[in-house]
Amino acid sequence: MPIYEIVFYAFSLVMLAGAVGVITVRNPVYAALCLVLTFFSASAIWMLLEAEFLAIILIVVYVGAVMVLFLFVVMMLDINVAPLKEGFIRYLPVGILVAALMAAELLVLIWSKGRFEAGAYPLPAPNPEEYSNTKAVGEWLFTNYLLAFEVAGVILLVAIIAAVALTLRHRAGGHRQNPSHQVRVERDERVRLVKMKPEPRQGS
């Protein structure tokens, strides 16, 4: 067995185990950590496909940013897991039926017509030494997939607008600072000069 096969199977198994863990583990923090493990294994498999850029992006963005944020949220919210499990048994038969159907269909697909047999797809030729995966991805993003790339940006903008629109509230009693108001403050608003009669010094 060549080394890349061993690496592939090892990381695939870890990835599957991680994915199963995400949905079976009781504690949401462990589930999030299992997802991190899944992402790591996926990125290793990408590395095996010589897609370094995607592999690193997966770790930097998903593991580094998204999952850490997710963990923060999970830890800050005191989620009571018990009510989430309600109805699990009741819906289990339907769930199993659907899952079994899907799995059966997938298996039929995999075994049909020899599409996924060993040797159906030859190994791609290795890239030349100076080939840069990052450069290739960048080139495609800004030429062939320019529109898709820009629209993805618009989608992120919409996500920001939606998040702000749904959560920003100006409470009546809130103590907010208004910098422009603070800068424009007049002397009269802070100092009050009081005219009073001079008082004779006591005890002289």
Partner: peptide, 23 residues
């Protein structure tokens, strides 16, 4: 196929927020 998916997501995301518009 990509543009179909992205266009659809743009509609969907905006619609989700609009449904929750009355907070």
């Amino acid at each position: 196929l990509v543009m179909i998916y992205l266009g659809l997501e743009l509609i969907s995301l905006s619609s989700y927020a609009l449904v929750a518009f009355d907070r």
